[in-house]
């Protein structure tokens, strides 16, 4: 057991999977010698060599497209897209090829590919370095979308992603890369993709969140009156959605608040809200609340904390939902 940050937990998972399976390789911009701009892949190239930890040319479509070929050709590539804002050039390869190959070839061509992408705001980064595009990829058939909120889950989920026979986008909430440490077992373990986690059990309101926002939800819960009991669910996987976990909770509480960084309209909160309504209609005591980013562009960093759902906004929404 070691006390690790999220960055260290991801690094450990990569090391262990590369040791366990020689097909596993890491590629992306600056991931080799430099160890990645967030140092997530630090030390890997020294350990595994330049063939398996590859500094690629600066071209996201190239990274994604060649990774598809590597996967089809029998490797287990773990590609890094340096920031979520740079998924744009890789979108075509990811959505029109990686996601589709199994279906369009009726299982003859498969793409066991992991795409690691730092995601989200709150680190005073430049433009297009702070977005939360998970809903776009959850909307794409054939892709699994994962976002850990803790070092322990980060390791187990990444190992699952690398071993998964299908493409997985593994979003890394950069705001909590080094925000806190957690005990992470040295041995390899997996967290199943598609399973949410009840972080705190409660009776009155269900709060559903993922990524860095889980940490803010916990802070918000500290701000609430002591007699208001909140059940906090960390989705861990965006798609496939663990709706059973949410439904079980909402049937108990009758109230649900969804919290995410991404814009509200057609955000993933909309999907969760719709499914809660479909499955828990007669159990609902209040309209499902969404605490989300505004339907605007993520501002430059002087205003980014005002854009992101704050502890105050989350606490207020939980309180309002409970009082309805």
């Amino acid at each position: 057991m070691a006390n690790l940050t999220l960055v260290q937990a991801i690094n450990l998972a990569l090391v262990q999977e590369m040791e366990a399976d020689e097909r596993v390789m890491v590629l992306g911009e600056d991931v080799g010698k430099n160890g990645g701009v967030f140092r997530v892949t630090e030390g890997l190239q020294e350990r595994f060599g330049e063939d398996r930890v590859v500094d690629t040319p600066l071209a996201e479509s190239g990274i994604m497209g060649s990774s598809i070929g590597l996967a089809v050709g029998g490797m287990r590539p773990v590609a890094e897209i340096q920031f979520e804002g740079f998924l744009g050039p890789a979108y075509d390869q990811l959505v029109n090829h990686a996601a589709r190959y199994r279906t369009r070839s009726r299982g003859a061509v498969t793409v066991p590919l992991t795409v690691r992408v730092p995601v989200g705001g709150g680190i005073h980064a430049p433009e297009l370095h702070s977005d939360s595009p998970e809903a776009i990829y959850a909307h794409t058939p054939g892709l699994k979308v994962v976002m850990p909120a803790s070092p322990y889950d980060a390791k187990g989920l990444l190992i699952s992603a690398i071993r998964d026979p299908d493409p997985v986008i593994y979003f890394e909430p950069k705001r909590i890369y080094r925000a806190f440490r957690e005990e992470v077992p040295e041995d390899e373990y997996t967290i199943p993709i598609g399973k949410a986690k009840v972080v705190e059990e409660g009776e009155h309101v269900t709060v559903v969140s993922w990524g860095a926002m889980v940490v803010d939800c916990l802070k918000a819960m500290d701000e609430l009156p002591e007699d208001l009991s909140v059940e906090l669910i960390d989705l861990r996987t965006i798609y496939p959605l663990d709706i059973d976990c949410i439904v079980e909770s909402v049937k108990k509480t009758g109230r649900c608040v969804v919290v995410h960084e991404a814009p509200k309209t057609a955000g993933y909160g909309a999907e969760i809200t719709a499914q809660v309504m479909e499955h828990c209609f007669l159990h609902l005591e209040a309209p499902v609340q969404r605490v989300a980013g505004f339907d605007t562009f993520m501002p430059y960093y002087k205003l980014e904390l005002e854009y992101l759902p704050s502890v105050e906004r989350i606490a207020e929404a939980i309180g309002a939902c409970a009082a309805y």
Binding site: D51, S67, G73
Partner: peptide
């Protein structure tokens, strides 16, 4: 790009 990736895999193998 897929061709390039397949070729690359064959080289690594």
């Amino acid at each position: 790009l897929h061709a390039m990736g397949i070729a690359w895999a064959k080289k690594l193998q």
